[in-house]
Amino acid sequence: MPRLLATMAACAIAVISVLHAAPAPGQTASAQLLTLSCSGCHGANGRSPGQMPPLYGRSAEMIAQALREFRADQRAATVMNRIAKGYTDAEIDAVAREIATTWR
């Protein structure tokens, strides 16, 4: 009986924490805000249905490196070079981490 009660209490706590929906580790609100626009072209969760390069399954290192190279005009691009220039190093790292860890 005490064990059942403990389970129930744990469930109640779990329900409450889901209801309060605390951000998952590594998912800060600002990183979420930074990546709101990315999925417009690259697809929901990075799964692009058409000609846009998908971002799903890419590591944070790959994404960050690509963004830095776009920003420095060191990688061929049509629009990403123009867009990457709008972000700081810290933002590029936050965007890369957010996409790599939360886009599922």
Partner: peptide
Amino acid sequence: AFRRSEAQYALGWYASMTQDIWG
């Protein structure tokens, strides 16, 4: 080639956007 590539991306843009919104 650049203009053609942007035309291709325009189609990709539409596919992604409309999937993101109504899909």
